[in-house]
Design a protein around this nucleic acid. Structure first.
Length: 571
RNA sequence: GGCCUCGUGGCGGAGUGGUUACGCAGAGGAUUGCAAAUCCUUGCAUCCCAGUUCGAUUCUGGGCGAGGCCUCCA
């Protein structure tokens, strides 16, 4: 079987050959943790999770390393910290640094739980930029010594800049653009202190007049770093500097973070580097420039993969259009319905990663219907207690050869999902072998986990209903904690009301308890029993009245063929 | 200006050099006190032009139309 991947670097589909089959290495650009992840962010998370699963299958789980970073140093984070914690900072009850820590911690945690809800495996490493500052300074020094970088004074202070001219002929290969074309384009701001307008920042001085920066930070903390920068002879002459060392109190540029974190965990040259389409230029181009020049290598990674973008209902997703949807919001309820992580993943994998997706309730409905059909049918007694099914669930997922062959063709999840959708549509009529294959494939793709099954069927047992409520509660609880920590009294009160209405008790900042199960359960069961009695005596009036009453409680009932009545929370 | 993607039934949306998945909506039926749910059956489609080919929705070229990226962005 051949395993092929489209490589942005060569613009062709190539056979994939790892540098070392015992150590297959992949780096994917993770989130900048200034705001909750939206569905656009979810795409690379899901796509590269599938690739991770495939690599693990092909080379053995212990032979694959997957690094997805957390960018927790960025001007947007600082801005967010100032916005959210302005009051506390002004009052002196919180340092800007702590505020930044609160923002990144909160956002990163939400990202982790989002990724989990979307059925993603945890990457091997999830490094944070703030833990690698020293190595960044080190790499910048290497670049300075090799004359690939220079110190200059910009409008906002001193900067260490990467010199793209020092890499002429090689810079721009990934994005397929030459420096000459760049100059012709009108989009690049010409800044006098740059040797070439395309030169980008490696290190940026933090000005003392920027609120709260100067003196607020200690070397160990998350923002504002003292960097010792060695200057090359050339730079010294140009800047008329006498000393060989210059200290710049500042912060790293965006691109250097990934160069450093990938090197730290995967080495100077590795197999696969992934991310969103928009990162090709300038982010990945600049990563390549930094890493190759610092290490003197021909490539940074052999294969570069980029996922296409996602639109929302035909439009670019943006805050100004008001169609910005976070993952948590989708699961809580979007366009009138909550969408499970499984449905979101199902929908996402239905399109090849290099195709744009238009995100809409219609498409999600399809995915949801499929997931529910699968889950519902596998919940049926004759299916569930069937030994073949049992076996499939209780063993490690062994994907079918066809699934692997589809995925091996440049991660063709659309084709893989086609297989699954077809099997699901005739799930009741599948042979034992086909059923087992379906169960394995669905699990391999991370579409459904055993723990998720009860939530997907729509036919909740009583205890499962309680679980669902607690599950929804956990999302609200997360929000409540955020509002609480922001001292947003109005919003946290609103959440508390929600809990009260659902008979859920907030025990502590880490714990919630569901108390609503028993009374509700008893009432519903009693009403259903009463109604069954009424039906047996053909008292249709009373029977319908009870149905209305249950309906008002948000409970929908179904009279089954065998004379029993089941119920579910109305969706 | 540079780079790139897409155009399939009423709608959403896959795949394929030779009978066009799947879902929603529609139609018919089973079941039902009614309803809901469920199950079964079913009608409906490949933007236009040219080329390659025995054969094109699929490959190539052109046209028309839609959208994205190039600036922080996944």
């Amino acid at each position: 079987m051949t395993f092929r991947l489209y490589n942005t670097l060569t613009r062709t589909k190539e056979d994939f050959t790892p540098i070392d089959p015992k150590n297959v290495r992949m780096y994917v650009c993770g989130p900048t943790v200034y705001d909750f992840a939206h569905i656009g962010n979810a795409r690379p998370v899901i796509v590269f999770d599938v690739l991770f699963r495939l690599l693990r299958h092909l080379y053995g789980a212990e032979h694959v390393k997957y690094v997805r970073n957390i960018t927790d140093v960025d001007d947007k984070i600082n801005a967010r910290a100032l916005r959210d914690f302005q009051k506390q900072i002004d009052e002196g009850s919180m340092s800007l640094n702590d505020a930044i820590g609160a923002v990144t911690e909160k956002t990163a945690n939400q990202f982790f739980s989002d990724a989990e809800a979307l059925g993603c495996l945890e990457p091997t490493f999830q490094p944070r930029a703030t833990k690698h500052i020293f190595e960044m300074v080190e790499m910048i020094n290497v670049l300075l010594q090799k004359d690939h970088a220079y110190l200059a004074r910009g409008s906002e202070g001193r900067e260490v800049l990467f010199s793209v001219d020092s890499m002429k002929g090689e810079y721009g290969k990934l994005s397929n653009r030459s420096l000459d074309e760049q100059r012709a384009g009108a989009r690049i701001a010409v800044e006098a202190h740059k040797k070439n307008p395309a030169d980008f920042v490696l290190w940026k001085e933090s000005g003392s007049k920027e609120p709260g920066w100067q003196g607020e930070f200690q070397p160990k903390t998350n923002a504002g770093y003292e960097a010792e920068l060695e200057l090359s002879e050339t730079n010294m002459r140009e800047l008329n500097l006498n000393s060989k060392k210059v200290t710049v109190h500042g912060r790293p540029g965006w691109h250097i973070e990934c160069s450093v974190m990938s090197k730290a965990h995967l080495g100077e040259v590795f197999d696969i580097h992934g991310g969103g389409l928009d990162l090709i230029f300038p982010h990945h181009e600049n990563e390549i420039a930094q890493s190759r020049c610092a290490h003197g290598s021909d490539v940074m990674a052999n294969v570069w993969m980029h996922n296409e973008f996602l639109q929302v209902e035909g439009h670019k997703m943006s805050k100004s259009l008001g169609n910005f949807v976070t993952i948590a919001e989708l699961m809580r309820g979007w366009r009138g319905e909550p969408w499970s992580g499984a449905a979101i993943r199902f929908e996402m994998l239905g399109t090849h990663y290099q195709q744009p997706i238009d995100w809409s309730p219609d498409r999600l409905t399809v995915a949801k219907a499929n997931v529910q059909m699968f889950a519902g049918n596998t919940q049926k007694r004759d299916f569930k207690f069937d030994s073949a099914f049992d076996k499939a669930w209780n063993h490690v997922a062994i994907p079918s050869a066809e699934l692997i062959s589809n995925l091996s063709d440049d991660l063709n999840t659309a084709l893989a999902m086609n297989l699954i959708k077809q099997s699901i549509s005739k799930i009741s009529n599948l042979s034992d072998e086909e059923r087992v294959a379906l169960v394995h494939d669905v699990r391999f793709l991370g579409l459904v986990t055993l723990g998720q099954l009860p939530y997907l069927t729509g036919s909740f047992s009583l205890s499962q209903m309680a679980e669902v409520l607690v599950d929804n509660a956990s999302i609200n609880f997360r929000d409540w904690r955020v509002f609480k920590s922001n001292n947003d009294v109005q919003m946290s009160n609103e959440r508390e009301k929600w809990f009260q209405s659902k008979l859920i008790q907030v025990v502590s900042p880490d714990k919630i308890t569901f108390h609503g199960s028993d009374p509700t359960k008893g009432k519903i069961e009693r009403l259903i029993e009463d109604r069954l009695v009424a039906r047996h005596t053909k008292n249709w009036k009373e029977s319908d009245r009870i149905r209305d009453e249950l309906d008002a409680m948000g409970v929908a009932i179904k009279d089954n063929k065998d004379g029993t009545t089941t119920w579910e929370v109305k969706r």
